[in-house]
Amino acid sequence: MSDATRDTGRRVRMGYAALYLAFLYVPILVLPVFSFNDSIFVSFPLKEFTTKWYDQLWETPRLFDALLNSLKVAVFSAVFSTLLGILAARAMTRYRFPLQRPIFGLVMLPLVIPEIILGLSLLILVNRLGLTLSLYTVAIGHVLLCVPFAVGVLLSRFEGFDRSLEEASLDLGESAWMTFWRVTFPIVFPGIVASLLLTFTISFDEFIIAFFLTGTETTLPVHIWSQLRFPQRLPGVLALGTLIILGSTLLIVLAEWLRRRGVQPDKQPDM
């Protein structure tokens, strides 16, 4: 293969990569662009620049209720799924026990079950138990959904863990508890923060499970869904969507940076 053909191949792939990035990002950039457009229609040509759609958001109390609900659910889901993720990731990397792979498979299973099935089956359970739908039922669904992601993120952190550090600490007279806090925890800490941020974002943005399990208090995505039926509310959704995308992006960039810091990109597992 000559250098010339190799370069041509590279250049073609480079061009393709640029197009692909455009395909990925155009739909996301549409929201911010039109959220500043002074028209209730999302269409060209663009009209005057305006921030009035953002100003209107401030005058929608139901929006703030939904936002607060979403924050509550997301914090709950993030904390619990990360705790459960720590336990599972530690058990998977530190110990060997019979049925380890099948149990791991079961824990990761929510990843490949359609969300509609997870949501509806939980709805049946809640109904059979005679519980009322509330933010708690949404949060339980979200914890289930988030656990595989938490485990995935934390595993990559726990796997690169050097056991001899813990052994050294124990040999030097630290108790098992102090060893955990002074050796293990600092090493896996970035993974824990990454997991918290990631699961928070997943829960905050999740719609399908929340749609089935939400009671009288709605989460933000469910609120947005209810707004989509009214064409005149469209610009408000654009403005709100822009803010949500901005927030999610910041959290995810932070999570990714923390998770991958010090880990070779080619040694990453696929999540």
């Binding site: 705790l83 530190r94 110990y95 060997r96 380890q100 099935i117 089956s121 359970l125």
Partner: peptide
């Protein structure tokens, strides 16, 4: 093995209670 099971049991419990049991109910 026992310690491994103990450690993974809370996660396993949540997955069983929130996924396996509801699916069986379904």
């Amino acid at each position: 093995a026992l310690r491994g099971y103990t450690l993974i049991s809370p996660t396993l419990f949540v997955v069983l209670a929130a996924m396996a049991v509801p699916l069986m109910l379904m």
